[in-house]
Amino acid sequence: MGKILCATRGGEASYRTQDQAIALARQRGDSLIFLYVIDTHFLDKTAAPIVVDVGNQLQNMGGFLLAMAQERAEGEGVPVQCICRPGRVRDEIKAVAREEKVDLVVLGRPAGEANAFAMEELRAFATEIEAETGSQVEIV
């Protein structure tokens, strides 16, 4: 049984990617890893008093979003592992792909201008993942 990695958050765009990853896992008979990356860099330019453990808050929220994704996958009979860890999204996707010896990385296609990756940039990132981890990448 191989492993498919799907980095996810929440929202409509993520649900579409999750569904595609779940369908691929079923089709290939692979297990699925959902990854949520705790990235607090959005606070870098704010001089407001950040005295709250934001990482912990985001870890709780990430855990909840992963639990939602897990419910969807298990509803389709796909075995799921969830990973929630801090860092930069790109770095952590590559790190988890290497650590878990992932066969396939599923990346969500940009949905309008709201997606963090423009399509061109996404393709370049896919090539980077393949080169650095040896995992295949599919843009869905």
């Binding site: 929202g11 959005f42 979003l65």
Partner: peptide, 19 residues
């Protein structure tokens, strides 16, 4: 104000981009 930006960042982390 700062709370607006911070809230938008938190929503973004949940996959909901606040424009």
């Amino acid at each position: 104000s700062a709370p607006n930006i911070v809230a938008a960042g938190l929503c973004d982390r949940a996959g909901y981009r606040m424009t």
